[in-house]
Structure formats: structure tokens, C-alpha cells
Design a protein around this nucleic acid. Structure first.
Lengths: 156, 156
DNA sequence: TGTGCTTTGTTGACGTGTCACGCGTTACGC
DNA sequence: GCGTAACGCGTGACACGTCAACAAAGCACA
């Protein structure tokens, strides 16, 4: 079910933009942040990732030139992850195709009742666990990085 | 949503039985098969896995003594995967706790309408893709290996 | 000041999964 | 039969994640 959709969407993303799904999520989240940068832990909690996971992934993305690490003068333990030019280009190029892909492989298949049921189920399961999957609001919707939320879509 | 449930269920499985989710799936599928054995490709298609993935995973499970490879005399290219004693013990020990876990973390949270919606959505998405996620029927329900289908559960 | 706890992040080992490729076997057209 | 294509499987390189251990910086408090 969702797994099928997921992997198809991921494949299309990789094919069309050379980005993996995690790449996309990181770039997207950074692109929504002030100054296109963010503290590692902050980004990790925001994305519900473990710090370790993010650190590993940032390392890989750094090697491909999509992001950089920058040190934080106020707190010497901390580190910033920052979008590079290439990273910004990449996410800008990838976003439209990706949301399109999500739409055709998932959203458009379902009617309003399905979508409602889906979000309802999501909420139940989420609240059964520790919650905090709520939203914690994007503070600077900058342009790309549509989080592909499950809200109904006004089809043309 | 499903991701949360998934990982919680996987964690419990690992804690209680030392099996990973993929381990469980392989063992479960084998336990439902005639002679507790199956051709690699056959098993792979049945599980919707790539042959490569299954091969890798069987290698790992082989090292832990859960399954064995056996050669196939009719077709020398082919190979069987076979449940060992230990593998059979492992799946038998793990199954009840696992279905219980699925129940408490997913099924029991949802009412009938939710479950109906979930299967409906699943079908839509599945049929949008190549289908064949239909059933291809287990040919020898032997005992364990409950596939954790999304059918409503008669609660006591 | 020093002592110990917390926070932040990195690292290594390892399990898992994909993709591309190679090798031997089988099937098939001629 | 014989050449070739298709099949079944294994493998290596690499991406992705988790877990546990660790280092360094901040912080609290006597």
C-alpha cells in the first residue's frame, strides 16, 4: 500500500533529480529555514530524526556539495547545516516534480472520504504514541519544500 | 503514522524474540510452505522482494543458523531456502507475541470504519500500481506465520 | 575553582537494501 | 547440435539507519 506509493515516488525523485528521499527532506527543511541554515539538533528534532542519523546523512550530502557545516560562535559544541548554492538549486529543481509525483501516486487516487480517513487514522496512531508529531510550524516558508501534507488538493 | 506503529512493532519483535522484521517475514513465509522450503525466486516474488535482497538476507540468516540453502536437482541454477530446526523454533516462539503486538499498536486503535477505509485505500493504491499484491494464496498454512492481514479482529 | 552532570555532535560497527554486474544453466530457434 | 537469449543466483560497492561509545563544551553548585 503506502509502501508501494512510497517507493515509486522515491524512484521518480531519484530519476528526475538525483536526490534521494532523505536528501529531499533535509533540503526541503533547510529551505524553509531562516538563512537556509539550522542547528543540527534543531533540524533533527524537527524532522524526527536521530542526531546520529542526521549527522551521517549531512556528511554524505556534504561530500556531494549539497550542504555545508558551519560552526556556531555562541555555542562551540553546536554546528550549523547550511544549504549551498547547489543544494538550493537542487531543491528548487526537484520540488515541483516531486509534489506532482505524490499527487498522481497517492492523493489523486483517493477521494475526500479516503483522505479524511487517512488523516484520522494517522492522528489516532500518532496520539497512541508520544504525539509531538503535531506540527511545530515552519517558521519561514520560503518557497520550495512543500511538505506534501495530506490536505485535499484543488484539482484544476 | 504507520511508520510509528511499524517501528514500535519491530522493536518489540526484536526485544522479545531476537528477530528482525525481515527475519520474521522470511521465516513466516517459509513456515507456510510445503516442506518448509522454497525456491529463492519463488520466495522473493511471493514476498515482493528483489532476488538480490533475499539472497543477501538469506546469507545473513544462514550465518545465524535460521535457514539453510539446499541445491535443487531439477534445475541446477536454482536454490532452495529451507527452515532449520532453530528457524522453526524461532518463528513458533515469535509469532504469538508479534500478532499481539500488531493488534495493540494498530488494529485495536481503529474502529471498523477505519479498518475498512484502510483496506480500501490499500486496494486503490495497489491497483494503481501493477497489482499482484493480491494474494497468491499460501499453499500450506502450517501453523505460525500469521501474515498480520488487516482484517477486523474479534476482540474477546 | 573544581567537580560532576547535561547537552551537542561525531564516530565505528553493523544490519539492511539497491543497483549493476558476472557466471553458470536452461530454453529455444535454426 | 549449436549459438544465443533468458533465467537464477551470488557478489561488491555503496546508501541508509541504529546503537553504543565517546569527546568536547556548557552549566550548576559547593
Amino acid at each position: 500500500m503506502a509502501l508501494l506509493a512510497d517507493s515509486a515516488i522515491a524512484r521518480e525523485l531519484a530519476r528526475d533529480s538525483g536526490l534521494s528521499m532523505p536528501d529531499y527532506l533535509v533540503l526541503s527543511s533547510l529551505s524553509e529555514s531562516v538563512g537556509h541554515r539550522r542547528r543540527l539538533t534543531e533540524l533533527a528534532t524537527r524532522m524526527q530524526w536521530s542526531p546520529s542519523r542526521l549527522s551521517h546523512h549531512v556528511t554524505r550530502m556534504e561530500q556531494r556539495g549539497l550542504v555545508t557545516r558551519a560552526e556556531c560562535t555562541e555555542d562551540l559544541r553546536a554546528a550549523y547545516v547550511e544549504l549551498t548554492e547547489d543544494g538550493w538549486d537542487a531543491i528548487r529543481a526537484a520540488a515541483p516534480g516531486h509534489v506532482e509525483s505524490v499527487r498522481t501516486h497517492l492523493i489523486d487516487l483517493l477521494d475526500d472520504a479516503d483522505l479524511a480517513a487517512l488523516t484520522r487514522i494517522g492522528e489516532k496512531v500518532a496520539s497512541h504514541f508520544g504525539e509531538q508529531c503535531l506540527d511545530m510550524g515552519a517558521d519561514h516558508p520560503d518557497e520550495p519544500g512543500q511538505s506534501a501534507k495530506l490536505r485535499p488538493v484543488s484539482r484544476s
